[in-house]
Structure formats: C-alpha cells, structure tokens
C-alpha cells in the first residue's frame, strides 16, 4: 500500500486515490492535429523505469487532481505539484527509456 501526500488532505493510503496516468498530456487542437497526432494523444504513453510524472486524484477525499513524480522502481513519491505547472526537477531525475 503506497501512502501518497494529497496536497490538501495530507498522507492517505493509495486506495483513496484514482490513478490518472501520465501527466503533461495536453489535449491538442483538434483542428490542426492529424490522425497520427490524435492517436498519440489518445493512446501513446511512456513507461519509464525510474522517475515518472503522473496524475492522481484524491477520490475518497477532496476530489482534487494533482501531479506527482514517482520512482517506478522504489515506488517513492518524490514530489507532488499542482496541475498546470511544469514538471519539476527531481533528484536522480533521468528516466531510463521505456
């Protein structure tokens, strides 16, 4: 059971959260995006061994979304940061290819 720091409610067990997949996937402009680009937006995700920027939502609590950097090897949650802000640097932040 991971314990994740909700930016509002504090440390809560993983079971209270919904995992929202990779962070920083912006919805592209549908008018100017070709089929391949739209497919990338819908389906293509990275799967790094190491630090991963991902989204979580505190479903059982405040229902707020936030971003987190998690090391997929150790499961350590290195930092959390608000939606809409760029990915921060993390110690040892270099994903080893997907």
């Amino acid at each position: 059971m991971l314990w994740i720091d909700c930016p509002w409610c504090g440390a809560r067990p993983e079971s209270e959260f919904r995992y929202g997949g990779e962070a920083h996937i912006a919805r592209p402009d549908p008018a100017t995006t070709d089929d391949a680009g739209w497919g990338d937006y819908l389906f293509m995700r990275s799967n790094p061994k190491g630090v991963h920027a991902e989204r979580w939502m505190h479903r059982e609590g405040c229902r707020r979304w936030f971003n987190a950097l998690r090391d997929t090897v150790s499961n350590d949650v290195l930092t959390i940061y608000p939606m809409g802000t760029p990915r921060p640097d993390a110690p040892g932040d270099e994903a080893e290819g997907g």
């Binding site: 929202g20 912006a26 989204r55 939502m57 479903r59 229902r63 707020r64 979304w65 939606m83 809409g84």
Partner: peptide, 13 residues
C-alpha cells in the same frame, strides 16, 4: 462526475 471534474481541473481550469 469524475469525468467532468477531470476536464474542469486539468484541461479547462
């Protein structure tokens, strides 16, 4: 409800 909240919070704040 989560679907609406997700768009409101993440894409259309």
């Amino acid at each position: 409800l989560e679907w609406l909240e997700e768009w409101l919070q993440t894409e259309w704040p």
